[in-house]
Simulated scan of single mutants.
Amino acid sequence: MKTIVICSGGLDSVSLAHMVAQQHELTRLVSFDYGQRHRKELDYAALCAQRLAVPHDIIDLRAIGAALTGSALTDDIDVPDGHYAEESMRITVVPNRNAIMLTIAFGVAAARGDDSVATAVHGGDHFIYPDCRPAFAEAFDAMQKQALDGYADVSLYTPFVHRTKADIVTEGYRFGTPFVDTWSCYKGGAHHCGRCGTCVERREAFDLAGVSDPTTYDDPDFWVQAVAQRGQG
């Protein structure tokens, strides 16, 4: 199955790219620059494409991102510390981000004769991001069948949508993902901060998976406190 992977350069999507490269026919990576403050992820997406020897499209959505105001990922708003499942993390929502990116990726797939578009949404995203939930994935796939009816037959591939971040680490390890060459932190500093929701979730996932975490964190032990506080909430 000829498959495009939407790749941000983060742990999830890079692991997915390595999995697809071995289980399907990976045709290209597609990334999006929507003006995100942690856009250094895109450099890691480029590294992934080079490593897997596939083309890499970076699609400029900065004008669209500028209109989707109010998120800590695009505006000058502090990214909160703490567990990803905390209510405070809703400030990291970019409205309709996945829906917009998937629509474009499906168009690319249809134009290039690909069979599927793969995205690494997972169970840990469901609380915060509505366009990462199984119901959205199913509805979007059905909508695209109508949008491309008679022109192309492209399906949505979401192998992690019912699985955890720890499951992704396990699968990434199995398929040889170089985790050190992935970027998750929402603060975009020299190293992963270790305190934002995605850093906490990343560090916790390695621990739950029993896989050594090669990531350098500015605050490598904060995750323990954040996870404990979440458990008491």
Rank of each mutant, 00 (worst) to 15 (best):
residue 168 I to D: 05
residue 168 I to H: 07
residue 169 V to H: 09
residue 169 V to M: 07
residue 170 T to P: 03
residue 171 E to N: 04
residue 171 E to T: 15
residue 171 E to V: 15
residue 171 E to H: 05
residue 172 G to I: 03
residue 172 G to D: 06
residue 172 G to E: 00
residue 173 Y to T: 15
residue 174 R to V: 00
residue 174 R to P: 02
residue 174 R to I: 01
residue 175 F to D: 06
residue 175 F to S: 04
residue 175 F to N: 03
residue 175 F to M: 06
residue 175 F to Y: 15
residue 175 F to I: 03
residue 175 F to E: 04
residue 176 G to S: 11
residue 176 G to R: 05
residue 176 G to N: 11
residue 176 G to A: 07
residue 177 T to P: 05
residue 179 F to A: 00
residue 179 F to T: 01
residue 180 V to F: 00
residue 180 V to Q: 11
residue 180 V to P: 02
residue 180 V to T: 02
residue 181 D to N: 14
residue 181 D to M: 10
residue 182 T to S: 09
residue 183 W to M: 06
residue 183 W to T: 09
residue 185 C to I: 04
residue 186 Y to F: 14
residue 186 Y to H: 15
residue 186 Y to A: 11
residue 187 K to V: 14
residue 188 G to P: 01
residue 188 G to D: 15
residue 188 G to I: 00
residue 189 G to H: 13
residue 189 G to C: 08
residue 189 G to K: 12
residue 189 G to Q: 13
residue 190 A to Y: 01
residue 191 H to P: 01
residue 192 H to R: 01
residue 192 H to T: 09
residue 192 H to C: 10
residue 193 C to K: 12
residue 193 C to A: 13
residue 193 C to D: 13
residue 195 R to G: 02
residue 195 R to Q: 14
residue 196 C to N: 12
residue 196 C to M: 11
residue 196 C to F: 09
residue 197 G to Y: 09
residue 197 G to P: 06
residue 197 G to N: 12
residue 198 T to R: 12
residue 198 T to P: 13
residue 198 T to K: 15
residue 200 V to M: 10
residue 200 V to A: 13
residue 200 V to P: 08
residue 201 E to P: 03
residue 201 E to T: 09
residue 202 R to L: 03
residue 203 R to K: 15
residue 203 R to Q: 14
residue 203 R to T: 14
residue 204 E to W: 13
residue 204 E to G: 02
residue 205 A to H: 07
residue 205 A to S: 15
residue 205 A to E: 00
residue 206 F to C: 11
residue 206 F to H: 07
residue 208 L to G: 06
residue 208 L to F: 07
residue 208 L to T: 07
residue 208 L to C: 03
residue 209 A to G: 05
residue 209 A to I: 04
residue 211 V to P: 05
residue 211 V to Y: 07
